[in-house]
Every structure is written in C-alpha cells, then in structure tokens.
Amino acid sequence: MENVGDKFKSIMATRNYADNYRKLMDQVFADPEVKLFIDEHRNELTDDSIKKSSSSLYEYVSKRDAMKKGTDAYAKGYEPKLVINNHAIEVSYQPTEAYLEQAKAKQIRGNIQDLGMSKALQNANLDDYYYENSPERKNALVNALDFIEAYETNPNEYHKGFYIYGSFGVGKSYLLSAIAHRLAKDNVKTTFLHFPSFAMDMKGLISSKTDSVTNRVDQVKKVPVLMIDDIGADSMSAWIRDDILGVILEYRMQNQLSTFFSSNFSMDQLEKEHLAVTAKGDFEPLKAKRLMERIKFLATPIEVNGKNLRND
C-alpha cells in the first residue's frame, strides 16, 4: 500500500507539479465533506492554516475513498475523521461503528462461559422472549427483569435465582440464556451449563491427563451467576449427584452466589422422582432431600407452561 505522504510528495516532485498540485487540491477542496468541515470550523481556522493543512485533507479524502472501495487495509476497523488541533486540520483515525459492535459482541461472548449452550440460544435476547397469551411466561419475564435490575443495582448483595420448570419447548432454556446475555452486556460473568452434557464431561475427565474434575468444578462453582439448564433430563449417578452437583451447590449456598435452574420437573418431582433414585436404581431420599434444600435456598420456583414453541 502506498503511503499517502509519499504519494503527495511524488506529485509535487513531477515536472508539472504546480498544475498537478492545483488540480489535486481543487478536487480535495471541492469534496462535500471537506467543504462542510471547513465551513463548520471557519472561526477556528485562517486561510493560511487551511493551506498548510492540505496534506491532511488529501490524506483524509484518499483514505476515506479507498476504504469505501475496500482497497485499503490501513488501520482496519478504523476510519479517518477530520479534527482541529491547535488551529490546524489533522486526520484522526477512530473506530468504526461495525468495529465497535464486533468488540462489544466479543466482550459479551467473553463474559459467558458456554458449557453446552445450543446454537439456538447463543443470541438469546429478552426482547425476543415470547410471552403473549401466557400469563406464566409474562410473569417469568417480569421476574427476570426484576432480578437483572436488582443485581446490577447491588451486585455485592445476594440475589436469589429462579428454578424455572414446565413442559417441553416453553422457553425455559431460552429465558436462562437471555438473562445470561443481558448480564454479560453489563460485564457480569455468567456460566450457562447444560447439566446432562456437563455430567458426561465430568465422567470423561476422570481419566484425563490435561484437566481434572476438581478444576472444572471449581470453575463452575465460583462464577458470579450460574445457569444450570435441563436438570433432571437424564438419570444421575450418586457420584454426579453428591460429588459434583452437591459440591457446586454447597459452595454457592455458603457463598450466596446467584444460581438458576431449568427443568421439566417441579421441585417436588425432582427430589422424589429423580434425585432420590440413582442410575443404579438405589433409593436415597435423605441425600435427595439434602440436595433439594440447597436448590430451594438458591432459587425460587417459577412455573412456565403453554404451547410448545419448538413446533411453531
């Protein structure tokens, strides 16, 4: 890519440099954006300072036009802007709106630890949460917005999460993901954890040489806001229940960290029909009750039902 200053000098160095320079600057000063800028700042500029700013004006027009054509990769993500500095015109390179949007999206993604979020949930937005003709969905949305406002107003206080339960396809997981995305926009660290997938990963880590169960559990249990999605979807071993889920919930309860759940089971069903019965068929109601007490401390139950949105 040819340097603008070098290009300007080469024009001046030609035999007919006076004519070339005059034609070049006539084009530059006739540029609508240049004319508008000079008019708007005329009280800050003299004729001499405008003349001395010729190379900057040429740089601005050249870079702007090259970027519009897509032929200039200089300072990618930045665009030239005319500015006044000490009564002279200079070029300042400032981030484009597209670049700022990309940076913001990257920041949001960095604030969400994704442990099993489906592709359909990766851009979940509370503004798109469907609640028409469903008082339950509307109530869930209102509670979600109240939580976000309370959390962002007082992030150092304990804010109880929700245990969102109901039938298939009513938007439970979507709502959890949308809450996570809204918090992430305000730089709150969240983890979205699809529990059946997480349980499989934990089993796989038992023999791993590059990571450990303890490290992974520590990452999850300490995050400021945790979304445990689809709890109760698969049978649970005693090890997953007591040494994985139990450890995570115990830590979060003791440290009062906001925790959310989604499930097809009510709290009572989760305790009696799922947590009390291990994958081997053992019946352990006391251990289930102990775990359920932690879930009740961490989350308020909110039922969401209605038509299956996945079939629409």
Score class of each variant (00 low, 15 high):
Ile11Pro: 01
Ala13Asn: 15
Thr14Phe: 01
Met25Asn: 02
Gln27Pro: 01
Pro32Asp: 08
Lys35Ser: 11
Leu36Gln: 13
Arg42Gln: 10
Asn43Met: 05
Asn43Gln: 12
Ser49Phe: 00
Ile50Gly: 05
Ser55His: 02
Tyr58Arg: 02
Glu59Asn: 08
Glu59Thr: 14
Val61Cys: 07
Arg64Asn: 08
Ala66Pro: 01
Met67Ala: 08
Gly70Phe: 07
Tyr78Glu: 06
Lys81Cys: 06
Leu82Met: 13
Asn85Glu: 14
Asn86His: 08
His87Asn: 15
His87Arg: 15
Gln102Gly: 04
Ala103His: 01
Lys104His: 11
Gly110Cys: 04
Asn111Gln: 14
Leu115Ala: 02
Gly116Pro: 03
Ala120Arg: 08
Leu121Pro: 02
Leu126Tyr: 12
Ala144Met: 11
Ala144Thr: 08
Leu145Glu: 15
Phe147Pro: 01
His159Gly: 06
Gly161His: 10
Ile164Tyr: 04
Gly166Tyr: 02
Ser167Thr: 15
Leu176Asp: 10
Ala178Gly: 05
Ala184Ser: 12
Ala184Thr: 09
Val188Pro: 06
Lys189Val: 06
Ser197Glu: 04
Asp201Gly: 06
Lys203His: 13
Asp211Pro: 00
Val213Asp: 01
Asn215Gly: 11
Asp218Ala: 13
Lys221Pro: 01
Val223Glu: 09
Val225Pro: 05
Met227Tyr: 02
Ile231Cys: 11
Ile231Lys: 10
Ala233Thr: 14
Met236Leu: 15
Trp239Val: 09
Ile240Lys: 10
Asp243Ser: 15
Ile244Trp: 05
Gly246Glu: 11
Tyr251Ala: 10
Gln254Met: 11
Asn255Phe: 12
Gln256Arg: 15
Leu257Arg: 15
Ser258Glu: 05
Phe260Lys: 02
Asn264Pro: 02
Gln269Leu: 11
Lys272Ala: 12
Asp282Gly: 06
Phe283Met: 07
Pro285Cys: 03
Ala288Ser: 12
Leu291Gln: 06
Met292Trp: 03
Lys296Ser: 13
Ala299Gln: 03
Asn305Gly: 07
Asn305Ala: 07
